[in-house]
């Protein structure tokens, strides 16, 4: 079953910390999102393998945009 990590707010991707195929633990930082000139860490909600990374550094995202898919 897949888990989708969505953007909690509109902003710009500062850094993507994982690539497809990587294993993550619950609570790992998967990417950095800048909103209101503030850096926000986006965490993996559960352990799994990164199936897909839908964004890259520099992308602008809206609230609810799919960032990463875990399985």
């Amino acid at each position: 079953m897949s888990t989708i990590i969505e953007s909690p707010m509109p902003g710009k991707i500062l850094d993507v910390k994982v690539a497809a195929g990587a294993s993550v633990k619950s609570g790992d930082v998967v990417l950095m999102l800048e909103a209101m000139k503030m850096e926000n860490e986006i965490f993996a909600p559960e352990a799994g393998t990164v199936k897909e990374v839908r964004v890259k550094k520099g992308d602008s995202v809206d609230t609810g945009a799919v960032l990463i898919v875990l399985e």
Binding site: P8, M9, P10, G27, A35, M36, K37, M38, N40, E41, F43, P45, T63
Partner: peptide
């Protein structure tokens, strides 16, 4: 604006990483 909103996010992030109140 937006300092006060950032303060809320900072406080929440220090206690509950993964909780986003900025917006």
């Amino acid at each position: 604006v937006p300092m006060a909103a950032r303060v809320v996010q900072r406080v929440v992030q220090s206690e509950n990483p993964g909780s986003y109140l900025l917006m």
